[in-house]
Every structure is written in structure tokens, then in C-alpha cells.
Amino acid sequence: MSTALHAPNAPVTDTAPPRLEARGVTMRFGGLVALKDVDLAVGSQEIVGLVGPNGAGKSTLFAVMSGLLKPTAGRVFMDGQDVTGSSPQKRAARGLSRTFQHPELFSSLTVREHLVLAYRMKNAKSRIWTDLVNFRGFFSAPKTEDTRVDELIDSLQLGAIQHQPAAGLPLGSARLLEIARALAREPRVLMLDEPSSGLDVRETEEVAEVLKAVVRDHGVSVVMVEHDVELVLGMSDSVHVLDFGVKIAGGTPAQVRQDPAVRAAYLGEEIEKPAVQRAEAEIEQGETA
């Protein structure tokens, strides 16, 4: 599945350190080298894409940067501070939030309740325990909470389903809910694991437009692992390509498209030529055959 999208907005330029950065990350599992000396930086209000063939090490790098794995060598930084030894919870407290390839939702909670719960996990943890003990549910919220939840529902276009339970939601809506829930924790960096997986073209375009609006309206930086190469190239400010655990290319989408190592290892002619050029070439070959 591939999606044509408008070029991304330019990232905000400043002199601050990257919001999230991997420096020289190496990850070994016994004799297997899953990552070897990988660098990746995510700047302010920047969308960074991570692509590569199956087994290239994308998920491993994601796990290292989010705190699920500690690297064999190398360091991870948030806003210039070394967080290599920090747990996922401590990184979340610093402003890191992530989604997973398969949406992990509470089937009995409504869309709105998911966002209320996520907001309180960041801003009012004591209320969650009190509400559960007193059987009051997740409502009776202060105005600031209602306002924030309403903003998320509006910006991710969830208003029509906000009172529906998560069970039975279409996959596209479930993915938007996961993104909204991650944003309810008010992160500075949002990590997305295969946000278009299982979606059709229309749903993929919807998710892409929502993500660009999130960066624009909420000031969030985004890093995503994604199998849809055209989606990544169409909406990212920078793209990094892994192959057998090694970063073989990194730069703007235009630079990655033209990189010979990328074409040879993964993207090939599918990314080297637009569809129209490929069709014309095929017609010419047919005429000369």
C-alpha cells in the first residue's frame, strides 16, 4: 500500500539539543548483532521516519529508544540528558509517549474514557485510584481536563464516536484513538509503531493528515517505524534506512530516494521512479519488442 501526500512542513529550527537521540547504538543478542553503531536524532516539531526490510533492526532500535531494551553499547538522550539507563516510565515522565503496532485498548471503556484515563495518568494519578474505589467512574472532571480531552477529540476527528466503547471500533478509528491516548499524556516526542498497518488507502491518508496536524498544532515531535515507504517519504522531514542492523542512509526524503545503497538494499525501482515514468518505460519497451 502506498500513499501520495503533500510535502511535509519544514521543522522548527533552533539550537536546542534533539528531543530524542540515539548515539552509536549497538544491540547484540548472543552472537546476533541486531544493531551496529546506529545514530538517529529527532528535532523539535520534526517528523522522522525509520524504514528498512524485515529484520533490519527497526523494532529493536525503537525498543532501545523507548526504554524497553538497554543497548549493548551506545547511549540514548532526551533533550541532551542521558536516559540510557532510564525505564520507559521515567522516559514517559520526561515527555516520551509511544503506540504499538497492534492497538492495545480497553474494550469496555469508551473513546472518551480512554483519553480521560490517559490524561489523569499524567496529571492526576490519585484521582484514578479514588474514582475506582468510590465507583464514580472517570467523569466529574475539572474544566481543564474536559477542555484538553475535547481538544484531542476535535483534532483527531473522534467526536462522532467519543461515547462508543473501544470494542468493535474499525481499525482506522482504533489507531486514531491510540494516537489520541498517547497525546493525552502531553508528550514532547511521540513514537509510532507501524501507524498505517492494516489500513486502506483512505484510512492511511486520514492518519497521515492527523499526524501532520498534531505536529503543527501540538508542537510534538514524531518518530515512526513504518512499512509504507511512500507514506514515510511523503510526510517525513528526515528518513533513516536500516539494513541488517546498519544505518545505510539518512537525510531528506529526496536524498533517500536517490541513494544508491537504499535502492539496492530495499527500495529499488519502486521508489526510484514515479509511477507515470515507470508506465511510460513499460510502454516504450512494449513498442520496441
Rank of each mutant, 00 (worst) to 15 (best):
T110L: 04
V111A: 11
V111T: 13
V111M: 14
R112G: 13
E113G: 00
E113K: 00
L115Y: 04
L115V: 11
L115G: 06
L115P: 10
V116C: 12
L117Q: 00
A118V: 08
A118P: 01
A118R: 11
Y119W: 12
R120S: 13
R120T: 00
R120C: 13
M121N: 10
K122D: 00
K122E: 05
N123L: 02
N123C: 02
K125F: 09
K125R: 15
S126P: 02
S126V: 13
I128A: 01
W129K: 13
T130D: 15
D131S: 14
D131G: 14
D131T: 07
L132Q: 13
L132F: 15
L132G: 03
L132A: 15
V133Q: 13
V133C: 13
V133P: 01
V133S: 14
N134M: 15
N134Q: 15
N134S: 14
F135C: 05
F135P: 00
R136A: 06
R136M: 10
R136N: 14
R136Y: 08
G137C: 01
G137F: 01
G137R: 04
F139Y: 15
F139V: 12
S140I: 01
A141N: 15
A141W: 12
A141P: 04
P142V: 03
P142W: 04
K143L: 15
E145N: 09
D146C: 10
D146P: 02
T147I: 07
T147H: 11
T147Y: 03
T147P: 00
D150E: 11
D150F: 00
L152Y: 04
L152R: 02
I153G: 08
I153K: 03
I153F: 05
L156T: 10
L156W: 07
Q157N: 11
Q157L: 08
Q157F: 09
L158F: 03
G159H: 10
G159D: 06
A160F: 03
A160T: 11
A160Y: 06
A160S: 11
A160Q: 12
I161F: 08
I161S: 10
Q162D: 04
H163F: 09
Q164T: 06
P165N: 05
P165Q: 04
A166S: 13
A166C: 08
A166E: 11
G168M: 03
G168E: 01
P170G: 07
L171E: 08
L171S: 03
G172I: 05
S173K: 06
A174I: 04
L176I: 01
E178P: 10
E178G: 11
E178L: 02
E178I: 07
I179N: 02
I179C: 06
I179S: 03
A180V: 10
A182D: 05
A182S: 04
L183K: 08
L183Q: 12
L183I: 05
L183F: 08
A184C: 02
A184G: 07
A184R: 02
R185C: 08
R185K: 08
E186A: 09
E186V: 09
E186M: 03
P187A: 05
P187L: 07
